[in-house]
Nucleic acid binder design. Structure first.
Lengths: 357, 357
DNA sequence: TCCCTGCGGGAAAGGGCTTTCTCTGCGGTA
DNA sequence: TACCGCAGAGAAAGCCCTTTCCCGCAGGGA
């Protein structure tokens, strides 16, 4: 690879001058030398070594992002928001997928710190795990002590700036909607119980039901992976245990899509025989049939806010922005069937839950 | 930020020794010194400066990837394959989204070169654009001249290693299937015509129709963005111009989903009144209703192959691996309606194509 | 006893760039 | 004419690591 001194030699100037031309330094360089340098750059196909630059420059520019999985639409939307602001400010983003593995999350904090990022954004649910939370906070604190900025999206564990979707109210809205439609036997297809997102949404849901004098017993909750297959499988288990269910709340849209798949495989009509509610309102929610009734979260906006917090001026006290959840009525939630499911014929048949495959 | 010499000073050793302990060098260090260094690292929360490391180490380890958009399921799947191999070999991936902007693609090649990546993978369609192709090839050649490895996925423009989905045969399969079902009035919802992926798929489709003595006139093709909204909009335009259509081929699944949305909005039953075929078989294809009949591409495998090519031993002559396309029959393609759409009542009504919103 | 060997450790030379500081030479002022 | 100031260019000091090279020392063989 050609280096800066190669360029300088070829142009007959010092490396200092070459550097100034290439970076558009404020220091003036005569046009003739400038031309010569530019010509040499073109001839040698010179590209500056980014590591050397970053090492030599004192100021940090890139921003590190840790998400569970960018290809998950939930995070894809958040990332879109992050990108928008970052691009506007000429920042590069380094995005890492933790795949919901706490250890990997910890590793990535180190890695990004090692890459001298100016700021760090952690998006995704927190964990009910004391030891992990403490470790993470230590690492974040160490990073902040050296001037790094940190913001989290959707997790409580960090004491600094945060953008929080109102998961609890979202759960509440889902519960209230279903109660309003007359449902009593409501099952929940939940994400991993170790995630705070799961428990927050569940708490809101439970509160709504309790207020209406109904209940949400543990036996009507199934925990699984927060994805399509997890939703399909959890729905199958739920139905097997309790064929009387008239509604299912999935704690995110991916799971809801899995739930719809299982219901379809079992021949249960949505929403005539059973209602389904999702959560997040990812783009695909409107394209499934029937279109998914769900709780919308302003995902892109969450990303925008978080990035703005972290790139803007710091605040003496932590800022927490809570973004509201909102119910989006589409076609998967309807009134409770009059006969309360006298027609639950197919449930026992399809025991194996093969919709998951 | 603490530096290596801070650690060394605190441990009372030389930076060389500290470095050896931290990196697990092959050179032996006595246990006592090792302990002291490790203690200092912990106390100072030391994290090595990645840029300094990369600069000091001669060998390059990271791999650069340029895709159109990771959050697009097509590329998410490919990326999954890339990741799998890279992780196995302890390589870091730097993933960049070009958002189908050729200039951005060029920029990212430079950027990644500047970051000293060991290899470069470009995934996504090529462009029918001489000037761009030449520029890109120059840049890639310059990179390869300095020992970089390059592989492309799904584009012909580079003369080196390549992994190619068999787009043409895929298009052919789609066409043959539709012909077999008796369709004659077939419309195409296509991606941007500047993309080779679009033209390759179209070519295969056209070949199949021609073989069956049918034709695919330009007026039955609509070009739009390669995404859901593009598909919805193109379908609306197609239907407005030609209400006699009995089948629509969308050149990728996202567009197919948009097409289904438009058809639903217009009250056209799929597949009873009109058939729809997709392309790619992204995961969501089986979850829409009716489940999408589509042409499957082995996306994950494409990623695996490309990464293997680029990390394995080089070959004197370029290797091109063509991966086969395969028709997946689900529920959106059916026989041509007997009455050849006497019931096309709703098409003129919904002129505005408001399903796109 | 002497020399050689090998082990554990440090000194120092990069790696490629930015940026401060220094130097030269010119035009302008007193 | 002597001096000052400044524009424009270069020298050199880092930035933070890794790794080679070298040195001192202890142990073993002759």
């Amino acid at each position: 690879m050609a280096t800066l001194s190669d360029v300088a030699r070829r142009a007959g100037v010092s490396p200092a001058t070459a550097s100034r031309v290439i970076n558009g330094s404020s220091k003036p360089v005569t046009d003739e030398l400038r031309e010569r340098v530019l010509a040499a750059v073109a001839e040698l196909q010179y590209v500056p070594n980014a590591h050397a630059q970053l090492l030599a420059r004192s100021h940090r520019s890139a921003v590190g992002v840790i998400v569970h999985d960018v290809s998950d639409p939930y995070f894809a939307e958040i990332t879109r928001g992050l990108q928008r602001v970052a691009t506007d400010q000429g920042r590069l983003l380094m995005i890492c997928n933790s795949y919901r593995d706490p250890d990997r999350e910890l590793e990535y904090v180190e890695l990004l710190r090692g890459h001298q990022v100016a700021a760090l954004i952690l998006a995704g649910s927190g964990y009910h795990d004391e030891a992990f939370t403490r470790q993470l906070n230590e690492k974040l604190a160490a990073y902040e002590a050296t001037g790094g900025r940190v913001a989290v999206i959707g997790r409580h564990e960090h004491s600094g700036d945060a953008v929080m979707p109102d998961n609890r109210t979202g759960g509440y809205l889902a519960g209230r909607e279903l109660c309003g439609l007359g449902h009593r036997a409501i099952g929940v297809v939940a994400g991993p119980r170790i995630l705070t997102t799961t428990t927050d949404r569940l708490a809101g849901l439970r509160q709504a039901l309790t207020e209406q004098g109904r209940e949400l017993p543990e036996r009507r909750i199934r925990y699984a992976e927060f994805d399509r297959d997890g939703g399909a499988e959890a729905t199958a288990r739920l139905l097997d245990a309790d064929p009387e269910l008239t509604a299912i709340v999935a704690l995110n849209d991916s799971m809801a899509i899995g739930a719809l798949a299982t219901l379809r495989a079992r021949g249960l009509a949505v929403p005539q025989q059973i209602s389904v509610l999702g959560f997040d309102d990812m783009p695909i929610a409107r394209d499934v049939t029937p279109a998914l009734t769900t709780v919308r979260l302003p995902l892109v906006d969450m990303g925008v806010r978080a990035m703005s917090l972290v790139l803007g001026v710091g605040a003496p006290t932590p800022r927490v922005e809570v973004l509201p959840a909102e119910l989006v009525r589409r076609d998967t939630a309807g009134p409770v069937p009059l006969s309360t499911r006298a027609t639950a014929a197919s449930a026992p048949r399809a025991r194996r839950g093969d919709a998951t495959s």
